[in-house]
Design a protein around this nucleic acid. Structure first.
Ligand SMILES: [Zn+2]
Length: 273
DNA sequence: TCATTCACCTGTCGGC
DNA sequence: TGCCGACAGGTGAATG
């Protein structure tokens, strides 16, 4: 259930295991996770390809190949990319296995099986979600003015607006709630009634919580792990997520949980306006 | 066209 | 203890 900081940590931890390695072959235990091309075609097409580097955009990982093609990977809710020594038992819930040159393999594990992989060419605009991604947190493109313009004429609630990956790339349920707490704004506020000053608070809140998540190698609640099977430490620093009924760290008021945009959302009724 | 809800899966937890 | 619904770091399709 990785969001930007978790996916970035996977990218960082995966690189040393796969950079320069050749894909000798694959085993597709759950072919439906291969969205493009058809699984049989995919299996043949990646054989012999050399991985040059691992990239990330929003919650997507890109494994670039020497011939300018790339594997586009989305971990969705419970996906993980794990490196494992040849000869060691494969990790549980392995759905796709990539057999590499060298002494390790790469396993795409996924309890809920929502994860996706595609093999794309450099100019393949085939994944609409990937193509539509908005600016990254912590980038100069993410400004109060950008968000204010984008929200003009929209009637959505702020949290749904933040979760839309075409607005900002990489926010998910945890960091959206945390960013809203940092910004002092309720998840239910209509975006067309957010002031210029508040949009700046949103930008600052998003950047702050994402930077903290990155520093702590992500948030592990239940399943998330990086390519080495390491957990993230950020859970200790969460202010509101999963703290329904507990006292606000800032004011002591019990935190409230409601459903917004179909997701559990926790906020402080005193600190967030 | 836009906003909201549902469906995709598997596992876990709380209430009865 | 056992069952059963609600829920879980996400996202596109279906629906209104
Ligand atoms: Zn408070």
């Amino acid at each position: 259930m990785p969001e930007l900081p978790e996916v970035e940590q996977v990218r960082l931890s995966l690189g040393p295991h796969v950079d320069g390695k050749t894909i000798l072959g694959v085993r597709l235990d759950l072919p439906k996770m291969v969205h493009y091309p058809a699984p049989e075609v995919f299996a043949k097409a990646v054989q012999g390809a050399q991985i040059t580097r691992v990239g990330r955009r929003g919650k997507y990982l890109t494994l670039h190949l020497a011939d300018d093609r790339y594997l586009l990977v989305h971990l969705r809710m419970t996906g993980a990319l794990l490196a494992g020594k040849k000869g060691d038992p494969e990790p549980p819930y392995t759905r796709l296995a990539f057999f590499l040159s060298g002494d390790e393999n790469l396993y795409f594990t996924d309890i809920r099986t929502f994860g996706v992989v595609e093999l794309l060419g450099q100019d393949d605009k085939r994944d609409p979600g990937y193509e539509a991604l908005g600016p990254e947190p912590l980038s100069p493109e993410l400004t109060a003015e950008y968000l204010r313009q984008l929200a003009k004429g929209k009637s959505t609630v702020l949290k749904a607006f933040l979760l839309d990956q075409s607005h900002i790339a990489g926010l998910g349920n945890i960091y959206a709630d945390e960013a809203l707490f940092a910004a002092g704004i309720r998840p239910t506020r209509r975006v067309n009634r957010i002031t210029k000053k508040e949009w700046q608070q949103v930008v600052d809140g998003v950047n702050q919580v994402i930077a903290q998540g990155l520093r702590n190698h992500g948030t592990t609640f239940r399943n998330y792990q990086d390519a080495n099977g390491e957990m993230g430490d950020n859970v200790k620093y969460l202010q509101v997520y999963h703290r329904k009924g507990k006292p606000c760290f800032r004011c002591g008021t019990p935190l409230v949980q409601i459903k917004v945009a179909g997701r559990g959302s926790v906020y402080c009724p005193h600190c967030q306006k």
